[in-house]
């Protein structure tokens, strides 16, 4: 069981809470406490809007343990409007409609399941942005 590991990350998984550097204003996600831009300490929390666009995408058929039930699924790199990029699945969209540059928004969905008695892990995915 990995309860503590997933609980610890709840703010990132459910609300895209990252950081903003008080020294250079760089927006940081995932949080890393040391600004990748200026190297100074950066622990001020910052909630991202969840808006972004598709940087790249592909489909996963050969899924790892815990993801077999959702295969095949679409995996993407999403560039958030505030700057950082995240790795996330795309959802609620037919494969043929996905394009590089497509505007997307964050939603909360089930990421993995460890069998009937195992835990369910929820987190962010992205879907086409409502017009």
């Amino acid at each position: 069981m990995e309860n503590a590991k997933h609980w610890r990350l709840r703010r990132q998984r459910y609300a895209l809470v990252g950081e903003v550097c008080p020294h250079c204003q760089e927006k940081i996600f995932p949080p890393r406490d040391v600004c990748p831009e200026c190297g100074e300490e950066a622990k001020d929390l910052f909630e991202f809007s969840g808006q972004g666009q598709v940087y790249s995408f592909t489909k996963v058929f050969d899924a790892p343990t815990g993801y077999e039930d959702s295969a095949p699924y679409t995996l993407a790199l999403v560039q958030l409007d505030e700057g950082p990029m995240v790795t996330a699945q795309l959802t609620d969209v037919p494969e043929e409609q996905i394009q590089v540059g497509m505007p997307v928004e964050m939603v909360t969905r089930k990421l993995r399941s460890d069998g009937d008695r195992g835990m369910l892990v929820y987190g962010y995915k992205f879907r086409p942005r409502a017009a």
Binding site: L9, S56, T58, V60, D62, A76, L77, T87, A88, R112
Partner: peptide, 20 residues
């Protein structure tokens, strides 16, 4: 915490780079 949890595989990550 931020890649594997999304169900990435080495194949998929290479595919993301290749498409871009």
């Amino acid at each position: 915490d931020y890649e594997a949890v999304q169900g990435v595989t080495p194949t998929a990550q290479a595919a993301l780079m290749m498409r871009r």
